[in-house]
C-alpha cells in the first residue's frame, strides 16, 4: 500500500501541474504542499464512496484553504469522483472546477471555501452536526499557515475545544510562506503547536508533511484522539511547491504564479524521473 500511495501522490501532483499548466496560472505552491495529506485521506483513511458522494454519515474533508482547490480536484478525479479530462476545464468560464472549492459545483466537495478562516468554522459546524446525529463520522479539515492569521480560526478553535468535538481532525499546511513573504516576517504565528495546545487541542507535529509514511502515521495517531474529548490539530511541516525544484525555489512567489504547459510537462518529467 505504501508504494501505491506514493504512486498515487505522484499522479495527483502531476495532475495538479497539468491542469494549472493547461490554464497558464494558478495557486501552485499551496496545492503541491498538501498532496500527501490528500492522498492519505482520500485513498486510505476516509470512509467515502465516489459512487455515492453525498452518502449520509460519510467522513468529510473541508479544505478551508480553498485556494488548494486544484489539488483536491486532482485527488477527487484520481479517486473516481469524475473524469480526469474535467481537470483541464479548471478555472475556465462555466467550469465545475473553480479556483476555490465550491460544494454546489463540484462532485465530492463538502464545503464552499475561499474566504479564509470561514471553512474552518464550517468544519466545526459539520463536526457538531455529526455529533448531534451520532453517525460516527470523522471530520477532516485543512487550514493554511497564513490563514491562521485570521481571527476566525481562533474563534473556531475555542468553540471546538469547548464543545469537545473530538471527531474533528484538522491539519495546518505549515509551509512557512504566504503571498507577501515568510509567515514569520508578515505576521508570525509561532509557536504554533503551543498555541493549539493552549486552545485545548491535541497536537501532533509532523516533521515532514510531504512524506507519505509520516503523514499516514500522523493521521492514524490523530484518530486515536477520537474519544479524548478534544479536537486534534496535525501540524504538517511542508514545502510550498513541493516536488518541483524551480517552483520550490520561487519561495513566496509560488503562491499564485504563471506556469506554461511546457513548463508543466517538464516538471512532470522531472517528477517521474524522466528528465
Amino acid at each position: 500500500m505504501e508504494q501505491d500511495l506514493k504512486k498515487i501522490a505522484l499522479d495527483i501532483r502531476c495532475d495538479v501541474l497539468r491542469c494549472i499548466g493547461n490554464l497558464g496560472v494558478g495557486h501552485i505552491g499551496g496545492c503541491l504542499s498538501v498532496v500527501e495529506l490528500l492522498t492519505v485521506l482520500y485513498f486510505e483513511e476516509m470512509n467515502i464512496d465516489p459512487n455515492e458522494p453525498k452518502k449520509a454519515g460519510r467522513d468529510r474533508f473541508i479544505c478551508s484553504k480553498g485556494h488548494a482547490g486544484p489539488a483536491v480536484y486532482a485527488t477527487l478525479s484520481n479517486r473516481g469522483y469524475f473524469d480526469k479530462k474535467e481537470l483541464l476545464t479548471l478555472n475556465r468560464g462555466g467550469t465545475n472546477l473553480p479556483s476555490h472549492c465550491d460544494m454546489n459545483r463540484t462532485v465530492g466537495i463538502d464545503m464552499t471555501t475561499g474566504s479564509l478562516g470561514q471553512g474552518f468554522s464550517c468544519a466545526v459546524g459539520v463536526a457538531l452536526g455529526s455529533k448531534l446525529e451520532h453517525d460516527g463520522a470523522t471530520i477532516y479539515t485543512l487550514i493554511g499557515d497564513g490563514e491562521s492569521q485570521e481571527g476566525q480560526i481562533w474563534e473556531a478553535a475555542m468553540f471546538a475545544a469547548s464543545k469537545k468535538l473530538d471527531n474533528l481532525i484538522a491539519f495546518t499546511d505549515y509551509n512557512k510562506l504566504q503571498i507577501d513573504g515568510t509567515v514569520e516576517e508578515v505576521n508570525g504565528i509561532a509557536p504554533l503547536d503551543e498555541k493549539w495546545r493552549a486552545f485545548g487541542w491535541n497536537v501532533i507535529d509532523v516533521e515532514d508533511g510531504n512524506d507519505i509514511d509520516e503523514v499516514r502515521a500522523a493521521v492514524k495517531h490523530a484518530k486515536l484522539g477520537i474519544g479524548s474529548q478534544k479536537p486534534t490539530m496535525v501540524i504538517l511541516n511542508t514545502k510550498k511547491g513541493c516536488g518541483v525544484k524551480w517552483i520550490e525555489d520561487l519561495g513566496a512567489g509560488n503562491h499564485n504564479t504563471n506556469l506554461s504547459a511546457e513548463q508543466a510537462e517538464a516538471a512532470i518529467r522531472e517528477l517521474r524521473g524522466e528528465a
Partner: peptide, 21 residues
C-alpha cells in the same frame, strides 16, 4: 449552543450545520 462573543464563527458554524441537514 452558545458560541460566546464570536459572531463570525457562529455564522460559519451555522453554515456547516446547514450543510449537514
Amino acid at each position: 449552543f452558545d458560541c460566546g462573543v464570536a459572531e463570525q464563527n457562529m455564522a460559519s458554524i451555522a453554515a456547516g450545520l446547514s450543510s449537514y441537514g
